[in-house]
Write a protein that binds this DNA or RNA. Sequence first.
DNA 1: CCGTCCATGTAGCGTTGCTTCATGGACGTC
DNA 2: GACGTCCATGAAGCAACGCTACATGGACGG
Lengths: 312, 312
Amino acid sequence: MDVRGSALWERVDVAHLAVLRELAEHGSVTAVARATTMSPSAVSQRLATLQRRLGVVLVERAGRGVRLTDAGRALAGIAASVSTALAAAEAEWQDYRGGVAGTVRLATFHSAGELLVPGLLDRLAAVPDILLETFDEDVSQDDFAGLTADYDIVVAHRSDDVLAPARGPVEVRPLLREPLDVALPLGHPLAGRSRVAPADVIDEDWIVPPAEFPLDRVLTAIAAQAGSPARVVRRTTHLPLMEKLVARGHGIALLPRHTTRDRAEGRLVLVPLADLRAGRVIEALMRPDRAARRAVQVVLDALVDEAAPYAA
Amino acid sequence: MDVRGSALWERVDVAHLAVLRELAEHGSVTAVARATTMSPSAVSQRLATLQRRLGVVLVERAGRGVRLTDAGRALAGIAASVSTALAAAEAEWQDYRGGVAGTVRLATFHSAGELLVPGLLDRLAAVPDILLETFDEDVSQDDFAGLTADYDIVVAHRSDDVLAPARGPVEVRPLLREPLDVALPLGHPLAGRSRVAPADVIDEDWIVPPAEFPLDRVLTAIAAQAGSPARVVRRTTHLPLMEKLVARGHGIALLPRHTTRDRAEGRLVLVPLADLRAGRVIEALMRPDRAARRAVQVVLDALVDEAAPYAA
DNA sequence: CCGTCCATGTAGCGTTGCTTCATGGACGTC
DNA sequence: GACGTCCATGAAGCAACGCTACATGGACGG
């Protein structure tokens, strides 16, 4: 940036540096090319010139793909902070100009999308300069953070029995905690109860998502408390399917209270669990540089507002 | 930096932004061209493309030169923070690589240069990768800050009767406080005294630097305390000349203790002032982005070390 | 009123970096 | 063990960008 002195930036373009950072997150040249709408060759050439200009080896081949060297990892970390600073500067400029324009890519898992996206779009209708693109992404509990490489905001969930782990360089904003209730068909013997204990329901047939999904972890806790394992008869991540199966008597399930009430109340019964704090935490994850963008912040704030009624 | 989203940095190059910042500090296109070794036309074209890409007017003509618009000033401020972030990133990279290379431009006023530069060079001999360029710059008290646009480190002085004023975005590192003594010829009636009061010396012929230089301000304070104005017979910033004039009986002067003692002791007598705290503060001034460079920090640390013996 | 200074256009050139296509190595499969 | 696939990289060609050098046109001062 400055001509005199050492002037790293006379030789190295920040745009070139950015691909290194993307490579660190996406893991392969082709993935970076896909994510940035460049050709793989362009990505490769950028990396090559970067290394030539710096006189340092940053990437090395590893089998079919590439791997960052130590120096590459170090520089990618630096590139991340540059990204964040640049995004902050851009935000400052947008503040000055008044406009909050931009495209925001939001990933939600199904039930959160159902719960939050419609109201979110209503709120954002007042901000015409922001284009919100929404995507469905439901992955296992630990994989949400990785999605932040592809989206500006990732709505993630985890069972609230585990502390939020160190998630590295990802920013977290809590949205809501959603209690999990036992869903029973209308004619079920326990359907009239105001609460049920783990021991009451452990011998039922259960319908839950695959292992390592938040809802599954809670069932594990129930089984632990009841002292006997749960009998899982079907696994699916698709909540409406779970509801239909429960309604027709094919088993019972743990279902998120708000989401289910909005949709399936009347076709089945939700009974809170006694003796166990069962719930899932829903939060927004972002890479710091993306979080620094004003358009992202506006969407995030709207998301928090939208979630507020459920936040209890 | 990022392809999706609003992507200001896809349109605007940080190098282009940098010229705006330089323009804000140097004030004219030609001055920026000189400072950056580009042609004036290149500077002008960068500004033009910057405005075209942003769709905003940043500079406007003012008489023979140009003036920043409000938007231009705002963006220049942002450019400054970008510069700092980039310099910090470069420093991080240099830390990783181990080397501390670079050219550092140091401006000193004459007596500080005499006092500090020889020892500074000794200290830096151990760091072969740093090239130190030194320059003499002695300006009036308030103009030192402006020199930071042209040098990495500016050694400045001010009389210590005034509080350091808000110096905007300039970083300050104190180096030493140098007492000012009354310099008398060897045979002077007061030459044997251990201290002299303002009233003792106010009726002498005085030799001082031009107005608004630190030493002049101290004489003003002496006159105020003595209750009568000082009779100034000659003005010069050149300390050796002042010493010679004093030694030959053409008047007396206020001279910095350490500098003078190193050079002229034996040819004149230095007597401390009683009833008045007379001294000048010597400090290093830097622009934040320059201060973030490791090479600059190394030189600065050496400078502080070199000044330490006098720091009392 | 003229000379000087400053900024900005214009022409032309060099460099850079992209796309497209071809090559070559590594892995999985039949 | 050979083939197909996937991935990264090299070469050729082209387009765009930004610079230097020079010319133009206001604005200030003598």
